[in-house]
Design a binder for these strands. Structure first.
Lengths: 156, 156
DNA sequence: GCCTATAATTATAATAGTTCTAAAACAGAA
DNA sequence: TTCTGTTTTAGAACTATTATAATTATAGGC
């Protein structure tokens, strides 16, 4: 499930990190909560700027280090940007992304809708692909590329 | 349709370029044929190295310029690499990619299989996403992430 | 075939994003 | 508290890509 939009207090994150064998530091807490509260998947630099603004005396290198640690421990995933820089996402499920051609932004399809699409994928075809190619599918990532015909409802 | 595995003589490429309002140059011919003959989607640098080996006195800048021109004219697409550098593909349809976690390589699902999956996507869900989000889906890109359980059949 | 206008190529410099380095600060266990 | 290994940090280094500006090539008109 997505952690988006949940309250994330320090204790909760502490035990989450603990469960993933990640040391708790104020920087990691800051990065993780900043990432998890984003509706649009941010780049490392966007996170750094956001954190610089809000307070926290955190360095860019640490943002990169932390994101890497989060990804390695399964608390985040790194998404390929169509453009230059990588984007990060605090949710680790299969899910759907929307790329807005106009702005280049990358965001989620709401959970329910996304799940509906994933649930309706033709499993027999996926199975056939696995069999014929000798490939084991671990994750399916779908990106819907296009543009908004009306204004998106809310922006961070 | 994919241009992969087709014979690409100079005349054919010439008229293809012409149809897409692209001037024909020996460098563009070289880049395009090199790209179209790849089964695995190469990075700009991989193409440059391949072309340097085979002959052709072509500069890295030109590889980038040409790839950009091809993409802009619709003869290729730029794919986001999970990692650092972009990958390119001479085919421009919706289609499925396979990312091998073990090697990081990106390749196509064979046309027939891929089409089968795309044809079996639940259209009503896509329509619902478009309606609810006010988003017009231009292209669907699916990536199957996992690893080979047996050796891939052939490598370039 | 030759000329010309326009566009493409090239080496190089510049930039952007990311990773590396080595020293200082910190977390967690004893 | 003290110790040990980990994390943070500023800055350097590196890699992928784009910009620059001079040179060269293409396509079309003659």
């Amino acid at each position: 499930m997505h952690q988006h939009h949940h309250e994330l207090d320090e204790a909760a994150v502490h035990s989450l990190f603990c469960a993933h064998s990640l040391r708790f530091t104020r920087q990691r807490f800051a990065v993780y909560t900043a990432l998890a509260s984003e509706k649009v998947h941010p780049t490392a630099d966007q996170l750094f700027k956001k954190l610089s603004r809000s307070d926290s005396g955190i360095s860019l290198a640490t943002v990169y280090n932390t994101l890497e640690a989060l990804v390695k421990s399964g608390l985040a995933q790194k998404l390929a940007d169509g453009g230059t820089s990588a984007r990060y996402d605090a949710a680790v499920d299969d899910h759907l992304h929307i790329r807005d051609c106009a702005t280049g932004s990358l965001s989620d399809v709401p959970e329910a809708l996304g799940q509906k699409l994933l649930d309706n994928l033709p499993q027999h075809v996926l199975k056939q692909i696995e069999d014929e190619l000798g490939f084991s599918i671990g994750r399916v990532q779908i990106e819907l590329i296009g543009e908004y015909t009306r204004q998106a409802v809310e922006v961070n």
